[in-house]
Amino acid sequence: MTITQETRKAIYDQNCSKVFCNILKIEHDRMGEPLRFADNNRKIVFGGFPYEPRGFDFTPPAPHSEDAAASISIDDVDRVLARFFQSIESGCAILSICLIRADEPNVVMDGPYRYSVTGFRKASASGQATLSLSRMMPLDANASGTRYTATSFPGLYG
C-alpha cells in the first residue's frame, strides 16, 4: 500500500483530474482464468493483466466492527456468470479488491483486501448482482479490533 506525494495532493485538491478506481479479481478453482473488473469505463492494465470495464459498488465491513461482512453489487451480470455464482459452494470463491489511481495503476493505494464469497443474489430486471462477502483475516490477525469470533472465523466454530 503506497500513498505517494502526488496521490496525497490529488486527494486534497479542490479540483482533481486523477481518477481513483477500485479493481476487482474473482478466483475459483473451476474458473480457468480469474474474472478481472475495473470500476471504470475503460480497460485498466494492472500487474500485466487487463481488467475489463464494469461498474460495481463495494460496501466494506463497518469500521471498528467485529462483523467482517461486506458486499459488492456488480452491474451487467449475464446469465452464465449468474449461474456460476449460484452453483459455487459458499466460501469457495475468493474476491480481491484494491484501490488504484488510473493513471498509475501499478501503485496500489489501498489493499488488496481478500474476501470469500458467501452468497449471491441477482436482480433479474436490472442485471445487477450482489455478492455477500466475508473478510478473510490473515493468520496473524491480532490487530486491534480483530478477535476470533464465529463471524470472522467460521471454521473454528463449525
Binding site: 479542490q14 483530474s17 469505463n41 475503460r42
Partner: peptide, 22 residues
C-alpha cells in the same frame, strides 16, 4: 463524468469519476 462533493461550507470539490468521457 464528474464526481462532485459538497461540503457544509465552502465551494464543492470536484474530481473525475472515470478515465473516459462519452
Amino acid at each position: 463524468n464528474w464526481l462532485v462533493s459538497t461540503p457544509e461550507r465552502g465551494p464543492s470539490k470536484r474530481r473525475l469519476l472515470t478515465t473516459a468521457q462519452t
